[in-house]
Design a binder for these strands. Structure first.
Length: 143
DNA sequence: AGCCATGCACCG
DNA sequence: CGGTGCATGGCT
């Protein structure tokens, strides 16, 4: 038994980009997973032994609905390509279900029993476009 | 490193 | 044949 190898990171989150939600018109091929030491250990280890390795992950959302996402390591950099990044694909149905937009956040977490949960959080100032265009002296005030 | 974009295969 | 997602290239 090797307790050290057991996953230590139990909860991660990501703010959706415009491309993640499909707002840019791109055929969405999955949200990008940053290669930081915090985020990556949450997912199964995928190496460069094989090209574009993947693992199917089942998540349960706040309404007990199950979602199967595919965690893929696009590593063709090591196979005469230029890619070297991780993506979580197959999320468009989920994004659509909850009408998530750029700036919104998804939270992935793992229970001690191994179940994986997915939650979402709408951005506070839920007007990603106008917020970006606001002058610096303007603020959105909630009444 | 991360986000944007697209050709193609597949499937209804 | 239109939508979807993979795999990949490109841009910032």
């Amino acid at each position: 038994m090797n307790f050290e190898s057991y996953v230590k990171v139990l909860s991660i989150s990501k703010i959706l980009s415009a491309n993640d939600t499909g707002e840019t018109g791109g055929h969405q091929a999955g949200i990008l997973i940053p290669k930081t030491g915090e985020i990556l250990p949450f997912f199964p280890q995928l190496g460069i032994e094989t090209k574009n390795p993947r693992a199917k992950l089942r998540f349960i959302d706040s309404s007990e609905e199950e979602w199967d996402f595919m965690f893929i390591y696009y590593n063709n950099k090591f196979y005469n390509g230029t890619r070297n990044e991780y993506r979580l694909t197959g999320m468009t149905a989920f994004i659509r279900e909850y009408n998530l937009k750029a700036g919104d956040k998804i939270i992935l977490s793992r229970e001690s029993d191994g179940r994986k949960l997915i939650k979402h959080e709408r951005s506070q100032t839920n007007d990603s476009e106008s917020v970006l265009k606001l002058g610096s002296s303007w603020k959105v005030v909630k009444i």
